[in-house]
């Protein structure tokens, strides 16, 4: 029980700092490779597709679709008190996938392929994170 409210925080580092600064400013930042034109997430020094180092930060649209999801009924540590909640892997319009949590999403409306939109939310007093909401 002592673990409750004791959320671990993501540790920003020299490579991810622009991503977390974007979150603070309400902007979802990903990288784009100037050599092969593909978008990249999470941030890297070398493009994982063509291994160029010509990666630049861009602002993502924040629009995407649900690639897969799960309703979590049993979570660990401080997250236990938040269950049930819905974790999704979202595929952004730019083609990258990321993990997120869906909020204000009625279970019966959540399906693979559903349109979603990023929403920067502070939950349980934590710093803002890129959650997603159903777009309709």
């Amino acid at each position: 029980m002592s673990e409750e409210a004791n959320y671990a925080l993501p540790q920003s580092d020299p490579e991810s700092a622009p991503y977390w600064e974007g979150i603070q400013q309400g902007e979802l930042r990903i990288q784009r490779c100037a050599a092969c034109q593909r978008h990249v997430f999470y941030p890297r020094t070398l493009c994982p597709y063509c291994h160029s180092d010509q990666l630049a930060w861009v602002s993502a649209s924040g629009r995407g679709t649900i690639y897969s999801y799960t309703v979590v009924h049993r979570a660990f540590g401080p997250f236990a008190a938040e269950a049930p909640f819905i974790i999704a892997i979202v595929e952004l319009e730019e083609g990258v996938r990321l993990m997120t949590r869906l909020i204000d999403a009625p279970r019966e409306r959540v399906r693979i392929g559903a349109a979603v939109q990023v929403s920067f939310e502070q939950v349980s007093g934590r710093p803002p994170l890129p959650f997603f909401r159903l777009a309709e």
């Binding site: 671990a8 993501p10 920003s12 580092d13 991810s16 999470y42 979590v72 974790i87 990321l98 949590r101």
Partner: peptide
């Protein structure tokens, strides 16, 4: 830390 920072905060067990 590192690549965990993009998944861990959402609470997936």
């Amino acid at each position: 830390r590192l690549t965990e920072q993009f998944e861990g905060p959402f609470g997936l067990p």
